[in-house]
Amino acid sequence: MDETNAFEVNRRKLMAGSAALATLNLPSGVEAQALDEEAPRVVVTFTINGHLQRLQLDTRVTLLDALREHLHLTGTKKGCDHGHCGACTVLANGIRINACLSLAVMHDSDEITTIEGLGRPGALHPMQAAFIEYDAFQCGYCTPGQICSAVALVDEVKRGVPSHATGDLTAPMTLSNVELRERMSGNICRCGAYSNIADAVSKVAGEML
C-alpha cells in the first residue's frame, strides 16, 4: 500500500477528525449500513494499479467505496454517487466506467486503473501533464475523473467507437472539438474549466491518434 503514501494529503487527516464529530448527524440509512455486521460478505480479488488486492467486503460495497474506503486510494472522487457527474471514472480492463455504479464484487479478477495508477509525481501520464500545462482545472475535484475519461476516450476513438457527434459512421474517426466535448459529456466540471480541459485533451489526443 506504499503507493498511496505519496498522495496522502493533510486535508484528509483533518477531515478524519471532523468526521468523528459528524457521525452523530449521519442519515439513518448510512449509519445502519455501516453497523450492519449481519449483511452478506464476499471475498474479492482484483488488481488495482498493478497490485493484487484481496478484500472481504459487504456485497453492497461499490467499486468506488472499495477504492476509497478500503484501499484508501482517494484520488477517485465521489461526486453524485449516481453516475451523473463522472468524478468516479476509473478504467476497468482499460475501459472507462463509473465506479459508483459498479459493485466491487462484480470486478473479481479485473484490472482497475485509477488516477494514482496512470502516472506518478515525476513520471506523469501525458494527460496528467497536459492538464497542468493547460490549467485544465480550478478546484480539482472532477480532475481525476476527467483525466481517466480522457485517456480512455482516445482509445475509444482508435477502436472506432462512434459518438453522437460522429458524421459518417463508417469513415475513419477524428477528434474535433465538438466530438471531444460530446465524448466527455459524462464528466461534469462545476468550475467550468471546459475550454482548458478540451485544449489539454486535444493536445494529447493529437499525439496519440
Binding site: 463509473n98 459518438s163 459512421l169 459529456s185
Partner: peptide
Amino acid sequence: KRDYGVVSRAIVAGATGQLRNK
C-alpha cells in the same frame, strides 16, 4: 454501423461513454 446505422445512432444519443461501456 454499416447495415443498422439507426441502432448505432440511437445508442450514442443516450447516456455517456462511461455508462454505455457498462
